[in-house]
């Protein structure tokens, strides 16, 4: 059973339709990638899920503890895209405050906060004010505020934004850990980071769903292999080859996509016998390429 089910939700602001008829669900033990360019409607969709906005149409259903029921904010963890912490508050106090608002008793909240701060290397900063922390540290604190109460549904809006590569790896590790006990919605436009984490993806553009499904299926169904080729001699023959698109040709080097439905074996058999191939690579399109392709095509 899903933890969250969203059915055909719509939301407009002053006549501008921010979200139009989007449906999806997410289960415990699953990470759903919510992908789309800036202004696609991701944040509005998330705000409807966490009850900040009411949808104009459609429904948001919750199944916390495996039972249908109303929105329970205590069971949701949220890392907003717009980062904002009380700058004058002390780190530990702030984490305890947010955990208390999520229904965790104060002492337990303090214990958990200390444990997590230690794990993220922030123990020495627990009595410092938020304003004394670096941006990366603040991001960690905000991440902790979202998960300290062990929510059933975790929503992370652009969690990698502003992080250095080391912390990006750390966050990836933490998000994968969350998957063990929660349903996770991960909104981002950093496809390379999302790709290794998501089980399913939902692409939205201009408030509408563009593509949705399990990651492998999306990549497979999107189906256009990328080919990188190094060869000897004249490559002009590539122009005559059926079933290839987006050819970029330079002396001894070519890159292109196979047409929709063209299988690698089919393509390899179509290569002329006289071709002296030095190196060839075939791979499924990355999320980034699918994203750019979709956004480019519809935007």
């Amino acid at each position: 059973m899903p933890v969250l089910e969203v059915e055909a939700v719509e939301k407009s602001f002053d006549g501008v339709r921010a979200v139009q008829g989007i449906s999806f669900s997410v289960e415990r033990g699953e990470i759903l990638g919510l992908l789309g360019p800036n202004g696609a409607g991701k944040t509005t969709l998330i705000r409807m899920v966490i009850g900040i906005f009411l949808p104009d149409r459609g429904a948001v259903r919750y199944f916390f503890g495996g039972k249908p029921g109303p929105l329970q904010r205590e069971r949701i963890g949220y890392l907003p895209e717009e980062r904002g912490l009380h700058r004058k508050a002390r780190v530990l106090d702030l984490l305890v405050y947010y955990a208390e608002l999520k229904g965790i008793p104060r002492e337990e909240a303090r214990r958990r906060a200390r444990e997590w701060l230690s794990r993220l290397g922030l123990s020495a900063w627990e009595r410092r004010k938020v304003e004394a922390l670096s941006k990366g540290m603040q991001q960690k604190v905000q991440f902790l505020a979202a998960i300290l109460h062990e929510p059933e549904l975790v929503i992370l809006d652009e969690p990698f934004m502003g992080l250095d590569p080391v912390n990006q790896d750390l966050f990836q590790e933490l998000i994968l850990e969350l998957k063990g006990s929660s349903a996770v919605i991960l909104s981002s436009h950093q496809m390379n980071l999302v790709e290794g984490l998501c089980d399913r993806v939902l692409f939205i553009q201009k408030g509408r769903e563009v593509l949705q499904g399990p990651l492998d299926e999306v990549r497979r169904s999107y189906g256009r292999y990328r080919v990188e080729l190094r060869f000897r001699g004249d490559g002009a023959w590539l122009r005559e080859l059926p079933g290839i698109e987006g050819l970029e040709l330079s002396p001894g080097k070519a890159s292109f996509s196979l047409g929709f439905g063209v299988e690698p074996r089919e393509f390899l058999e179509s290569l002329p016998d006289e071709l002296e191939v030095e190196e060839i690579s075939l791979r499924r399109p990355t999320l980034h390429e699918i994203f750019v392709d979709l956004v480019g095509g519809t935007g």
């Binding site: 705000r47 966490i50 205590e74 949701i76 949220y78 904002g84 700058r87 608002l101």
Partner: peptide, 16 residues
């Protein structure tokens, strides 16, 4: 201030 420093969103994910 809370609006300008974007603090309200996190809070409103926990309280009405």
């Amino acid at each position: 201030n809370e609006k300008r420093e974007r603090q309200a969103e996190l809070l409103l994910s926990s309280v009405t």
